[in-house]
């Protein structure tokens, strides 16, 4: 199936990506067209999978053959909260600061 500009932009919105970022208003349409063409080519290629009937096949989401091991259900502190918070670009005490929401 062909991907149109609208689908590209909708997908970008879902992915929280601004496709015009870093581009001038003159550059943006050509970049969007190029990306849409690339996505179309790749997704058309994905459609090769329709050649196979998989109606009776269970999906395999992970190749691991066994059930995951469980660690003891005991609380533990593995990293220092201050060290973890120190990487926040903007913080206030133990809170992350973001633009006003309401």
């Amino acid at each position: 199936m062909p991907i149109d500009f609208k689908t590209t932009l909708r997908t970008a919105e879902l992915a929280c990506l601004n496709l015009k970022s870093g581009l001038s208003p003159e550059e943006a349409p050509a970049a969007l067209a190029r990306l849409t063409k690339e996505l179309t080519d790749i997704i058309n290629y994905f459609n090769i999978l329709n050649e196979i009937n998989t109606s009776e096949v269970e999906p395999l989401y992970s190749p691991l053959l066994e059930v995951a091991g469980l660690r003891p259900d005991e609380p533990e502190r593995r990293a220092n909260p201050e060290e973890l918070l120190s990487q926040a670009p903007n913080r206030l005490g133990s809170f992350f600061v973001v633009p006003k929401i309401i």
């Binding site: 997704i43 999978l49 998989t54 999906p59 395999l60 989401y61």
Partner: peptide, 14 residues
């Protein structure tokens, strides 16, 4: 169409 289908094909490949 895509994600589940690919996971099914993954089993066949494995």
């Amino acid at each position: 169409t895509y994600y589940k289908k690919a996971a099914q094909v993954r089993r066949l490949i494995r």
